[in-house]
Simulated assay, not measured.
Amino acid sequence: MDALIYTAMSGAERALRGQQVHANNLANSDTAGFRANLELATAQTAPGYGYDDRHMSALQANAISAKQGTLRATGRDLDVAISGNGYFAVDGPTGEAYTRAGAITLDANGTMTVNGMPILGEGGPITLPIYSKVEIGQDGTVSIQSPGGRGEMQVIDKLKLVKAEGSELTKNEAGLIVARDGQPLPTDNTVNVRAGHLEGSNVSAVEEMVATMSLTRTFEVQMKLFKAADDMTQAGNRLIGG
C-alpha cells in the first residue's frame, strides 16, 4: 500500500510541475522567437535499501520544441528571421548562446544587439559604422552603404548562424538556448535568413490549453489514488487491531 503512495505522490507533483511548464509557454505565446519548453516524464526507483518495488515519476522539462513559428513581414532592414532550422548566436550573460529572435537594434556604439545582447558575427560582436543603408543577405552577410548614398554596398561581417537538432539543445537559467554539452556550436553555412521578417513564438495556445486540462485530470486521479491508499491502510490497521 505504501508503494502506491509513492506513485501517487510523485505523479501529482509531476502534474503540478508540468502545469507550470505549460503556463510559462502560454505566457510567451506572443514573444518573438520563443521556443516552447517540452515536459517529459520518466519512471525512477525510490532510493534506499528495500525500496525496489516503490517507483516514482520524475519530470524532465529541459527539452525544447524545434517547430518553426509563423514568419511575418515587417519591412524593417534590421529585422531578420531564420527560415527552417537554425539559430542566431548571441553573447549571453554566461557566454555564447542561441536565439530565434531577430529584432536587431543598435546600441550607442553601433553594436548590433538582440534583447540587449550583442549578436555575434564571424569575428565576434558586430559593430556598424555610420551608414545610409544597411542590408542583411540570405546567407547572413551584413552590408552597408556609406553616408550620402553613394558607392557600392560594403560587407562588414556575417552573422554567425548555427544549426542543431532539438535533442541537442536546452535552455539555461536566462532562458537562452544553449548546447546540451555546453560547447559552442559550429557555424553552419546552410542556414537561410530572411531580412525584413520576424518569427513569432512556436507555442500553440490550443495545444497548451489541452495539455493543461489533461494534467489537471491526471492530478485529480493521483489524489483519488492517494485517498484509496490511505483507506486501504486504515482498513488494514483495523484488521490488525482486531
Rank of each mutant, 00 (worst) to 15 (best):
G84V: 11
G140Y: 06
R238Y: 08
G148E: 02
A27I: 12
L120V: 12
S57C: 01
S167N: 15
G75D: 04
G84L: 13
F88H: 02
A8T: 06
R150N: 08
A205Q: 12
I130S: 15
I177D: 04
G18E: 01
E165L: 11
A73G: 09
G84M: 13
V221L: 12
N202L: 06
E220L: 01
P147Y: 09
G241T: 11
M112P: 05
L106W: 00
T127G: 07
T187P: 01
G182C: 14
N25Q: 02
A229H: 04
A228C: 07
K158T: 14
T233G: 03
N24H: 13
K160E: 09
I104L: 13
A23R: 03
G200R: 04
P147F: 05
L185V: 05
I119K: 02
G116T: 07
A89I: 12
L185G: 05
G50A: 02
A97I: 00
M223L: 15
E168L: 06
I130P: 08
I240G: 14
G69V: 04
K227C: 01
L176Y: 00
I126L: 08
R72C: 04
R17V: 01
I156E: 04
R180N: 11
M209K: 07
G69C: 04
L38F: 00
N37F: 03
L198T: 00
P47I: 14
Q19I: 08
A8V: 06
G48E: 10
A101Y: 03
S167T: 15
A235P: 00
G121T: 02
S57H: 03
G33T: 07
P93Y: 09
V155L: 01
L71E: 09
Q68F: 08
L16A: 12
F34I: 04
T127R: 13
L239H: 10
T94E: 15
E135T: 07
T70N: 09
T216G: 14
Q60N: 13
E207D: 15
M9Y: 06
D107H: 05
G200D: 10
Q44T: 10
M117F: 11
P129I: 08
K67Q: 15
N37D: 15
H22D: 08
L59V: 11
V142R: 01
E173I: 07
E152Y: 00
Q44N: 03
A43K: 07
T233D: 10
R54A: 11
A32E: 08
K227Q: 09
D181H: 03
T212H: 00
P125A: 04
A174R: 02
S143K: 08
R180K: 15
G92T: 10
D139H: 06
R17Q: 06
R54I: 04
I130R: 14
I240Q: 09
L120R: 03
Q234A: 14
G148H: 03
T45M: 15
E220Q: 13
Q19C: 02
E152R: 00
T70V: 09
I64Q: 09
F226L: 15
S146E: 12
P184F: 08
T216C: 09
V206P: 10
Q68R: 08
V191W: 13
V210L: 05
K133S: 09
R54F: 06
A81D: 05
E220C: 03
D230E: 06
V203R: 07
E13M: 04
D2T: 14
L239Y: 06
V191K: 11
D157P: 02
K224T: 14
Q183K: 13
